Amino acid sequence: MATAFGRALHIPSCSLSLVCKNVSKPSFGVAKLPWPAQAGKARTRTRVMVTRAQLRPTWLPGLDPPPYLDGSLAGDYGFDPLGLGEDPESLRWYVQAELVHARFAMLGVAGILLTDLLRVAGISSIPVWYEAGAIKYEFANTGTLFIVQLLLMGFVETKRYMDFVSPGSQAKAPFLGVEDSFEGLEPGYPGGPILNPLGLAKDIKNAHHWKLKEIKNGRLAMMAMLGIFVQASVTHVGPVDNLVEHLSDPWHKTIVQTLANSSS
């Protein structure tokens, strides 16, 4: 970094190395360097503000990420204010937990918006999303649906956890011969023709670009789910209903007026 900066200011890198001992480091990653003396001129000391080049973007510009977040993880912007990832094993578990929650959130947002749009448009009589769980379905009773969901999700989550504990172990012990269709790539990325039909990330070790896209969209979906939860609690209608109401009077039907009216 010193060499690159020295070239930018036409200063030899060795000059920078000589003055590095006198560098003071104020907050926000700004360093103050004395200007090196030039031959034939009186020695002067000019304070130059130098912003340290970031090797990678961080969640707050100017802050150095913690040492255990070295940028190797997809979507790593050095955000860990509580220090939850200091332990390597805990960090490994949190990475998988975030990935699963991100995927559930993306599915949840897509399902809520699609069903709400069909309901508001009058295409279907689907209930609003927060009442869907209380609806009685004709093809099966609630107890049966609960047991089936418990068995299916319990099986999948158990297999996922065992693969996390011992990566690749689940592909070695076939169950009904379906493991070959998932082609376990690495924990959290099963792949295969079922979960990766387009083959976008067959080389999962070098698929950082796709991993980054997925986790970014997943984090956005988690924030969207939080917004949908708050919106439903305050307005008692679906997100599409809120959007239609806002578009009908954009200057008066806003989040500010809605929150003000709900608190009064």
Rank of each mutant, 00 (worst) to 15 (best):
Gly168Phe: 06
Gly78Tyr: 06
Lys136Asn: 13
Leu55Cys: 14
Thr258Tyr: 10
Ala42Ile: 08
Ile112Asn: 00
Ile194Gly: 01
Leu247Glu: 05
Arg52Phe: 13
Gly133Trp: 12
Lys253Pro: 02
Asp163Leu: 06
Thr58Trp: 03
Glu186Leu: 13
Phe229Ser: 10
Asp64Thr: 14
Trp93Leu: 12
Lys32Gly: 11
Gly177Cys: 01
Leu200Val: 06
Ser72Met: 00
Leu60Arg: 03
Asp241Tyr: 07
Phe5Pro: 00
Gly191Thr: 09
Pro239Phe: 05
Leu195His: 02
Ala207Phe: 02
Gly184His: 13
Gln38Thr: 15
Arg92Trp: 13
Lys136Phe: 09
Gly6His: 09
Gly199Asn: 11
Arg219Gly: 03
Ala260Leu: 13
Glu245Thr: 05
Ala134Gly: 05
Pro187Met: 03
Gly218Glu: 08
Leu152Phe: 09
Ser125Asp: 13
Val230Phe: 15
Met223Asn: 05
Leu176Ile: 12
Asn141Ile: 05
Val178Glu: 00
Pro193Glu: 10
Trp35His: 15
Leu243Phe: 13
Gly83Pro: 03
Ile147Val: 07
Tyr189Gln: 05
Pro193Cys: 04
Leu118Trp: 06
Gly78Asn: 04
Phe175Arg: 01
Asn196Thr: 02
Leu117Cys: 10
Glu98Lys: 07
Val234Pro: 04
Asp203Val: 08
Pro88Ala: 04
Ile126Lys: 00
Thr46Asn: 15
Leu114Tyr: 13
Ala74Gly: 14
Gly199Phe: 03
Glu179Met: 04
Gly191Pro: 04
Thr51Cys: 04
Val109Leu: 04
Leu200Thr: 00
Leu60Pro: 01
Arg160Glu: 13
Pro81Met: 14
Trp129Tyr: 06
Met162Trp: 14
Gly122Cys: 09
Leu117Glu: 07
Glu89Leu: 13
Ala224Arg: 07
Gly122Pro: 03
Asp70Ser: 04
Tyr130Ile: 05
Gln231His: 12
Ser233Phe: 13
Asp116Val: 05
Gly143Leu: 05
Leu118Lys: 02
Leu145Tyr: 06
Gly143Ile: 14
His101Thr: 15
Gly227Trp: 01
Gln96Asp: 02
Tyr94Ser: 04
Pro88His: 06
Pro34Cys: 09
Val234Tyr: 06
Arg43Met: 10
Arg119Cys: 02
Asn217Asp: 08
Lys216Arg: 04
Leu18His: 11
Ala2Thr: 09
Lys253Gln: 14
Ala97Leu: 15
Thr158Asp: 11
Tyr130Thr: 09
Val95Asn: 13
Phe139Val: 01
Ala224Leu: 07
Leu91Cys: 11
Met49Asp: 14
Asp116Ile: 08
Val240Gly: 01
Arg92Ala: 12
Leu247Phe: 09
Arg52Ser: 14
Ile147Leu: 11
Gly191Met: 03
Arg160Asn: 04
Pro167Asp: 05
Lys159Ala: 07
Gly188Asn: 02
Cys14Glu: 10
Val230Ala: 06
Asn196Arg: 00
Gly40Val: 12
